[in-house]
Amino acid sequence: MTVEIIVRETKTGLEIVSGQRRLDALLALRDEVVVMSPGIGEIVIARLPDGRLQASANPEHVRLFRQPEAASGHKSFA
């Protein structure tokens, strides 16, 4: 499944411009998702235990959480 979330960089981090509903649907299935955002590239977004979202465009984080749909084993930011 490919999903595009448009985000912009702010002084305090990343802000979702569009795609919030699609992101919520993905995060209902797993704790972390890797998405593509125009202008930024791939980012990993995680829902923290307190409900806040945390995002990272660090290639190492993206690689860690980029996994095939059928992959076994589970890693978590939180």
Rank of each mutant, 00 (worst) to 15 (best):
E15N: 10
S76Y: 07
A57T: 01
R47Y: 00
H74F: 10
L26N: 04
I40L: 11
I16D: 00
R63Y: 05
A71S: 15
R21K: 14
G51T: 03
S56W: 10
R63A: 15
G41W: 00
A28W: 05
P59V: 04
Q67K: 15
V62F: 11
G39N: 10
V34Q: 04
G73R: 09
L23T: 07
E60D: 10
T12F: 06
E60H: 15
L14S: 00
T2L: 12
S56I: 06
H74R: 13
V34K: 02
Q67F: 04
L26S: 03
D31F: 03
D31A: 14
D31G: 15
D50C: 05
A57L: 05
R47P: 00
I45G: 00
A71M: 11
L23R: 01
R21F: 07
F65C: 10
Q67S: 15
R22H: 14
L14P: 00
V35C: 08
L14K: 02
P38L: 03
V17G: 01
Q54D: 10
S72E: 13
T10Y: 03
T12G: 02
L26G: 03
H74Q: 12
I40Q: 00
F65H: 13
E42T: 04
H74G: 07
A46D: 04
L27N: 06
V17S: 01
A25W: 01
P38E: 01
V7W: 02
A46W: 01
T12C: 02
R21C: 02
R30H: 08
D24K: 07
V35E: 05
A57F: 08
S72Q: 12
Q20H: 13
F65Q: 06
A55N: 00
F65E: 05
R52T: 14
V34H: 03
P38G: 03
R47D: 00
N58A: 12
T12E: 09
R47T: 09
R8Q: 09
A57Q: 07
L64V: 11
V62A: 12
A70N: 15
L53M: 07
A25T: 07
R22K: 14
V62P: 05
D50W: 03
V34T: 06
S37T: 15
R63M: 07
L26E: 10
S72G: 14
E32H: 12
A70H: 15
R21V: 12
E60F: 15
E4M: 13
I5G: 00
I40N: 00
R8T: 10
S18P: 02
